[in-house]
């Protein structure tokens, strides 16, 4: 059912905690917001409150991991990557089995405004060797990714929404690392007509992308929607296929357009050697206070903007 992915993640932690005694959870005075409250209630002896001191929390997580624990350190994603140098050395360079859960991704958080919005976190995390970067689109994928990352041996950053997101996956969906999945496939066309567009979305923008494709389908435009939940490693095949089969690629992310999903898609298209224009929707500035829906409209992430990006004259 529709849920904030932070909540789905928190629910999954409780279930995993029942069978995996290695799991420990660390918070920096935000356990009421990160989704870890359920774990704290159920397993208080395996929950550690570090106060408003994220870099110490991240360093301690590395130490716990070096002694065989599987620590999840949670905070708003902007506060985690504010401690990038600690993440770089204590987590990435040391290859410690630390799971960083960055909630409150993007302008989707709404009213609290820019200082609470994670808008550069994917760019920072993608630049760290050995880091796995995940962003679930819905409840099912968030639970599966959480299970996957606790079982995985190595550092992971998972990016989660504050806002409720719709269910976009069917029950039988299985998350695979390094694989994008098609959420909306247009009806087959006669002849060899290329798709009007392939839209790549991730996290909070997946819902609007699917809405946009449905609205375009009703108007006779064939658009495929691809969910890129695994931002690193990134599925290089999906953009290459999109470049071959589409007139254009549109990327839409609740993040700065530098270094995130749009960049990853452009890198993959360039590497493929196939020419295809890429329209990147996302932030090029900081955000501001308003409702999440108003901000998605203002900053070009709504279904209407995605429709326009699929149809706009590129010349």
């Amino acid at each position: 059912m529709p849920k904030a992915t932070r909540q789905s993640f928190g629910d999954a932690l409780v279930r995993i905690g029942e069978k995996d005694s290695r799991l420990v959870v660390l918070d920096a005075d935000l356990s009421k917001s990160t989704g870890t409250g359920g774990f704290l209630k159920k397993f208080p002896e395996r929950h550690f409150e570090f106060g408003i001191a994220e870099q110490n929390m991240i360093g301690a997580a590395a130490g716990l991991a070096l002694c065989g624990k599987v620590p999840v350190a949670a905070s708003f994603s902007c506060f985690l990557i504010g401690r990038l140098e600690t993440i770089r050395v204590a987590v990435a360079y040391n290859k410690t089995n630390v799971k960083l859960a960055g909630t409150h991704a993007g302008i989707g958080i709404g009213d609290d405004g820019t200082s609470q919005m994670g808008l550069e976190d994917v760019a920072a995390m993608r630049a760290l060797p050995g880091m796995t970067v995940l962003q679930p689109a819905d409840d099912l994928e968030a639970r599966q990714m959480t299970e996957w990352m606790i079982a995985h041996d190595g550092p992971v950053f998972i990016r989660l929404t504050r806002q409720v997101v719709p269910d976009v996956h069917a029950e039988g969906y299985r998350f695979q690392l390094g694989k994008a999945d098609v959420l909306h496939e247009p009806a087959a066309a006669k002849g060899e007509a290329k798709l009007q567009a392939t839209v790549f979305a991730s996290g909070g923008t997946v819902g609007p992308a699917v809405d946009a494709a449905k609205s375009l389908a009703a108007r006779g435009f064939r658009v495929r929607v691809v969910n890129a939940g695994s931002l690193m490693p990134f599925d290089l095949e999906a953009p290459a296929r999109a470049a071959a089969e589409s007139q254009r690629i549109v990327t839409v992310e609740d993040h700065n357009i530098t270094g995130g999903l749009g960049s990853a898609v452009c890198e993959a298209v360039a590497t493929s050697g196939l020419g295809c224009p890429v329209v990147r929707l996302g932030l090029e500035s900081f955000g501001e206070s308003a409702s999440g829906a108003e901000l998605y409209e203002k900053y070009g992430l709504s279904a209407e903007h995605i429709v326009e990006a699929c149809l706009r004259n590129l010349n």
Binding site: A60, G63, C67, P71, V89
Partner: peptide, 30 residues
């Protein structure tokens, strides 16, 4: 990762005590 016996790769000053704290916490847990 290059020299067995080194517990933590360090050099970025200020980080070691937090990591050591995590190790001590793990010992208490176990």
């Amino acid at each position: 990762l290059r020299l067995p016996g080194i517990e933590v790769s360090t050099g970025s000053l200020g980080q070691g005590l937090s990591i050591a704290l995590g190790m001590a916490l793990a010992a208490k847990l176990d």
